[in-house]
Every structure is written in C-alpha cells, then in structure tokens.
C-alpha cells in the first residue's frame, strides 16, 4: 500500500469522520441533550465542557474487573462497540460527502455494525456474575428482537425506491429526484424509524436495559474507570451516528449543509420524547414494536412497491 493511501486511511479512521470526530461531536451533542433536559425541568444544567470533564476523570479511576467472570470479554466488549461506531461513521459520512466512493452492500455493513453494539453490551454484561447485569442483558436481547424487524423494513423502503443497496446510489437518486421522505411511503418509514432509533440508542421511553432505578445500571453496573468511559463515549456517539444514518437515507437534498438543520430537528424530537414520557416495560415495548411499528413499516413497504 502506498504511503499516501495509508495516511489517508489513518486520517479517515482516527480523525474525520473517525474516532476524533465521533468523540468530539458525541460530547457536544450530549451536552445539548443535558442542557435542554435541564431547562425543561426548570434547572440550569451543566457547562459546555462537562461531558469532556466526566470522561477525563473516568480515565483516572481504577478499573475493577469482577472475579469469576470472563476477563477478556469484559475488557474487549466496549472497545468493539466503539470500533463499530467508527466504522458506521466512516461509511455514512464519507459517502454522504462523496457518493461516488460507495460500494454495493455498504448499507448491510452499517446494519451489522449497528447490531454489533447491543451484542457487545450483552457480552460485557454477561461477563460479570452480577444478577442485575444479566437482567439488563436479557432485556437488551428482547429489545433487539423488538426493534430490528421494523427498522430493517423501514430501511428497505429507500432501497426499493432507488433499486440499489449502495448508499451512494441512494444519495445520488435523492439529489436528482428529491428526498425520499417527500413521498408517502418515505414519510411513514421515516417516522417509524425515529422510534426504532430511540430504542436503539436506549433512551427513555426505551431505556429498560440500563434503567438506573430498577436494575442499578443494568448492563453497566460492574464497569468502572476507563472501560466505563468507553461505554459512555459509545452512548454519546450513538446519539450522533444513528440519526445521521436515517437522515442520509431519507432526507439528502441538493443543499448538502442542510443536514445539520435536519439533524438538529431530529435531536430535538428525541429529547422531547425523552422528557415527556416515563419508561415502558419491556413486554409493552415488544408488543408496541411488533404491532404498531411492524404494521406501519409493512404499510410503507407495500406503498413503496406499488410506487407511492
């Protein structure tokens, strides 16, 4: 491999749109979330650099590895989750900026990487012998069963409308023919996918796998120090890449910088949903996803196939 190609891979995966971008934008978005939540609750809220201070402090604490569990899966799980996010960010943002570089099937890679994150948290939680962590892991599994199917069906809608499973081709189709959510099937799929990503990011009303007041932190209960910091970074950066993914699929327009405005609106919707609802029970969420969300995404699919 030539030196310049190596350097450009280095840059892509470590700086932009790789690790540094994902971490920095994650901290910024996490601050926005905490500040708006505080204002809705009549409080003042933290300062701008607070997420950075939290992460910096966590790296200074000792890492305790619980006895009796599998040491290596405990340590590697959060790192795998972070690497998945870096890969997703790379695919989504790079091909949004330059659609010609995308390859056939890159959407499938993104879907796999999105699924790797809850699997990593299940493995990390099961690696300790804590009953709360195993409860959290079982809830995470049920949650995946709930939202993955409607999510996949929603993603099929742009694929059917544009006739290709390459993200670059979907983006180029939208640049020529207008964003997909302007059509009836696109709009239905877009709205359903907002609920699916709320569950994917583990935010109220779907945060049962990490419910602090029910199971003491669930999947994260035994983590401390640098490993906890990596999990927190994963959660923060998921708040960046998950909405970006569905915006790129459904709402790419000729005005490329418009993605910031749409992302901000989506972030506001997520935060408002978070603050105006209590937490659902896992079986209620399962039922909700397998009835309402599945029916909605099926309708969107049918509409897309028949051309609406």
């Amino acid at each position: 491999m030539e030196k310049i190609e190596l350097l450009s891979y280095f840059f892509d995966y470590l700086v932009f749109p790789g690790l540094l971008f994902v971490v920095a934008s994650g901290m910024l978005v996490s601050w926005i979330d905490r500040k708006i939540t505080a204002r809705l609750q009549w409080r003042v809220g933290p300062g701008l650099l607070q997420p950075y201070y939290d992460i910096r402090k966590l790296f200074l604490k000792e890492v305790i590895i619980p006895e009796g569990g599998n040491k290596w899966s405990f340590i590697i799980a959060p790192m795998c989750a972070l690497i998945s996010i870096v890969i997703i960010s790379n695919i989504v943002l790079k091909y949004y900026i330059d659609p010609s570089g995308s390859f056939v099937g890159d959407i499938i890679v993104v879907i796999y990487m999105f699924a790797a994150i809850p699997v990593a948290s299940i493995i990390g939680a099961s690696a300790s012998k804590n009953p709360y962590a195993s409860l959290g892991a079982s809830r995470e599994m049920k949650s995946m069963l709930a939202y993955e199917l409607p999510f996949l069906m929603c993603i099929m809608v742009p694929v059917i409308k544009t006739g290709s499973i390459s993200m670059g081709a979907i983006i180029q189709h939208q640049l020529q023919n207008g964003p997909i959510f302007m059509s009836l099937s696109g709009l239905t799929a877009f709205i359903t996918s907002i609920f699916c990503i709320q569950a994917k990011m583990g935010i109220v009303p779907f945060d049962y796998s990490e419910a602090e007041t029910e199971i003491c932190g669930g999947v994260l209960v035994e983590y401390s120090g640098a490993l906890l910091a990596i999990w927190k970074l994963v959660k923060m950066s998921l708040l960046v890449v998950a909405p970006l993914f569905i915006i790129v699929l459904f709402a790419s327009t000729g005005f490329r910088a418009g993605i910031f405005a749409v992302y901000f609106v989506l972030l506001l919707i997520v935060i408002i949903l978070k603050n105006t609802n209590p937490r659902l029970r896992i079986d209620q969420a399962l039922r909700g996803f397998w009835t309402y969300a599945a029916v909605a995404s099926l309708t969107a699919l049918v509409l897309a196939v028949t051309g609406y």
């Binding site: 939540t37 809705l40 609750q41 009549w42 409080r43 109220v204 009303p205 945060d207 419910a211 007041t213 029910e214 603050n275 105006t276 609802n277 209590p278 937490r279």
Partner: peptide, 16 residues
Amino acid sequence: AGHFIGYNTVWMWSWK
C-alpha cells in the same frame, strides 16, 4: 414515584 418510572420531569416539577 415519577423518578422510579423514569419520568424525571415529574420528579423535578413536584419537588419544585
């Protein structure tokens, strides 16, 4: 009660 069902907004408002 609001805090336990994950509805922190109720918690903050009623304590205010």
